[in-house]
């Protein structure tokens, strides 16, 4: 059993490397594997165009996918555990709606009030969007964390989160109604999600933030394991429920907020990956599930990015559609298999 787990974990880690390399290799422009290798190792002699495509486009995209996938998966796992609800995910508390609201304000209002369509602002516009998304997501999160300290039941908190999501959507709807078509289009495209939006320095910043946050969220494994038992038992075992909830929701919230700010609301990964990890590893021990979710989340994000960019689609497929199209059948398959093994026992 233990050996089995270690082996699986290594395989998953290996799969990240494989998919990462495939992400660099495949794309609309054909680049031979040898050239990719040379560029990566810094060996001179490749054309500037090839170097640029790989270093400025494919590497940032793949890196973004790796950390975003991992972040969403961890956030989803934490949400499912703290709410003891298999349908919970990063988007459940309205945190991604908060990000959307922030972005909607910037995109839709700047066009209407300022008279300048944001799409024409270039880099400045991108930065404004990221900041707006982070502000929106974090303010909703602050609200949720505040509420979580006030209400007792998890279900109540969950419902309040969903309600906040609805309010955000409603406000966005109103904003859309008063906006020009061009801006609405820009907003819709943001909402489709993409790993390609982040570039240059911002990408480095994003990756750095996530590289700090992901290990930090792993510090909560004992808390999460205790929360599995339910509030009564967890409390009896010395866990401060309020504090635990605060930490877990803040952690999951910040992860979601930052990923959403940089990549748009990426659906499904956060919900599906924890189920996959549980299905594959047949455990609910977060000491295993946490690294497993990180690995599977990264791999799945890379695969989805690969499919979205497949030759022929030319970036026409939004990441959000791909995550659901690829993820949903996989989850159904895993759940079906699990059922069978349960019945046979």
């Amino acid at each position: 059993m233990k050996r089995h787990t270690t082996l699986l974990m290594w395989l998953l880690a290996l799969s990240i490397l494989v998919f990462f390399f495939l992400n660099l290799l495949l794309g609309s422009v054909h680049i031979p594997a040898r050239s990719v290798w040379n560029v990566l190792l810094g060996i001179e002699g490749e054309s500037e165009i090839v170097t640029n495509i790989i270093m400025k486009s494919r590497v940032p995209q793949a890196l973004t996918a790796v950390v975003a996938g991992a972040g969403l998966a961890v956030s989803g796992l934490q949400m499912q555990t703290v709410f003891r609800n298999p349908l919970a995910g990063p988007s459940v508390l309205g945190i991604s709606s908060g990000a959307s609201l922030g972005v909607a304000f910037v995109i839709l209002l700047s066009g209407t009030i300022g008279g300048v369509a944001l799409s024409k602002l270039g880099l400045m516009g991108e930065l404004a969007l990221t900041i707006a998304a982070i502000v929106g997501a974090l303010s909703v999160m602050a609200l949720i964390v505040y509420v979580s300290q006030k209400v007792k039941g998890n279900v109540t908190l969950l419902i309040i989160g969903v309600m906040i999501g609805y309010i955000a959507s409603a406000v966005i709807g109103v904003l859309k109604f008063f906006s020009v078509e061009e801006d609405i289009r820009a907003y819709v495209i943001w909402g489709l999600g993409s790993f390609a939006r982040v570039s240059g320095d911002q990408m480095i910043l994003f990756v750095c933030i996530m590289v700090v946050l992901l290990p930090l969220s792993c510090l909560l494994v004992k808390t999460l394991n205790l929360l599995l038992l339910g509030d009564g038992y967890a409390r009896n075992l010395g866990l401060n429920i309020k504090q635990a909830r605060f930490l877990v929701i803040s952690c999951a919230g910040v992860l979601t907020a930052i990923v959403t700010a940089y990549c748009g609301p990426i659906m499904f990964l956060g919900l599906a990956v924890p189920h996959l990890s549980r299905g594959i590893f047949q455990t609910s021990d977060h000491r295993i599930l946490m690294p497993a979710s990180i690995c599977i989340g990264s791999s799945m994000a890379l695969v989805c990015n690969l499919i979205a960019r497949m030759p022929g689609f030319e970036g026409a497929l939004p990441v959000n559609s791909v995550t659901a199209l690829v993820g949903a059948p996989v989850v159904v398959y895993v759940l079906f298999n699990k059922r069978k093994s349960e019945f046979s026992e």
Binding site: N225, L228, Y233, L237, G238, R278, S284, R287
Partner: peptide
């Protein structure tokens, strides 16, 4: 309350009873 824990072994659950004594990672 019947706790609806899935995918946890009997000995793992009993092991959680050691939580007040175990360290940071609960090992």
């Amino acid at each position: 309350e019947k706790c609806d824990i899935r995918n946890m072994l009997v000995e793992e659950l009993i092991g959680l009873g050691r939580s007040p004594y175990t360290g940071f990672w609960g090992k």
